[in-house]
Design a protein around this nucleic acid. Structure first.
Lengths: 142, 142
DNA sequence: TTACTATATAGTAATGATTCTTATTTAGCA
DNA sequence: TGCTAAATAAGAATCATTACTATATAGTAA
């Protein structure tokens, strides 16, 4: 999905959920789409504040939460550090470095289609499935 | 693994890592082993403080972190809420409820042996692999 | 276009979790 | 039994998140 398409999806989803399309929201979403690093709220705030010097941290924070509720960004699983967000909403998987805490996306067709036991599908309403690997990333294992 | 065995492992690992076996550490580990609910630091503190009325939150917190560094408990993946710990260090998987945030363990032999692409094994030093499902738990989907 | 209204925002304060500091205590060795 | 490095308790500091409120604005309807 390119930026144009992402922005169109953004506007559509905002309308669907009755959210107004404000310059702040637009900028936050656009910056999020460009992000390749699972930024935290503060990371995003640092980037947005260059464009909107008066924007408040709270606005960025609330906006990212709305986005995640609307399903146009994801909250990445972590280990009790600050929240981190992911603009990639297609099925993918994560490697997490136990040393530098970097979260690295990867995709794998074979992992995409792992079979969830029927018993679990009956018990839970499953929205998302993902493989999470932990260990040392290429930089840290040197 | 029963409690006796867990406590033996605990003492062995402490010796291995040069940690002293204090009554506080012993109590924290024992309480952790009994826990079936991925407790947070504060949950554990509330339980321990009944036995050691003077124990400090910080001691519980530091102790749990040491345990996770020693590999005798795990930190559970979450979404930016407080840290939660898991005494189950054998391979298992997690279902996480998007509504009540409960984390439910499950095991599945077929999921235990999913194949990680060779490319990733070359790139990273993989210590742990796990399937994480998100959705609504049985209670919340009613 | 303009006026209206519900929603969004900025600024700031409050809360909650984690981590640090320091004086005191203690486990484990000699 | 005494010694010493490590551990603890208590409280303070830091950092992330969330709440509050007055003002501003997007989007609708005249």
């Amino acid at each position: 999905m390119n930026i144009e398409q992402s922005m169109a999806l953004f506007r559509e989803k905002c309308n669907q959920h009755g959210l107004k399309i404000t310059p702040q929201r637009t900028a936050i979403f656009e910056e999020m789409v460009r992000a390749k690093d699972h930024p935290s709220t503060d990371d995003l705030y640092q980037r947005i504040v260059r464009i909107f010097p008066n924007i408040s941290f709270d606005t960025v924070y609330r906006t990212l939460l709305s986005f995640s509720q609307m399903g146009i960004v994801n909250v990445v699983e972590g280990y009790g550090e600050k929240k981190r967000f992911d603009p990639n909403i297609e099925t993918h998987h994560h490697f997490r470095c136990m040393k530098c805490y970097e979260i690295i996306d990867f995709s794998s067709e074979s992992l995409d289609c792992i079979e969830i036991p029927q018993e679990l599908q009956n018990r839970f309403k499953i929205v998302n499935k993902r493989v999470v690997l932990e260990g040392l990333c290429d930089k840290c294992s040197k």
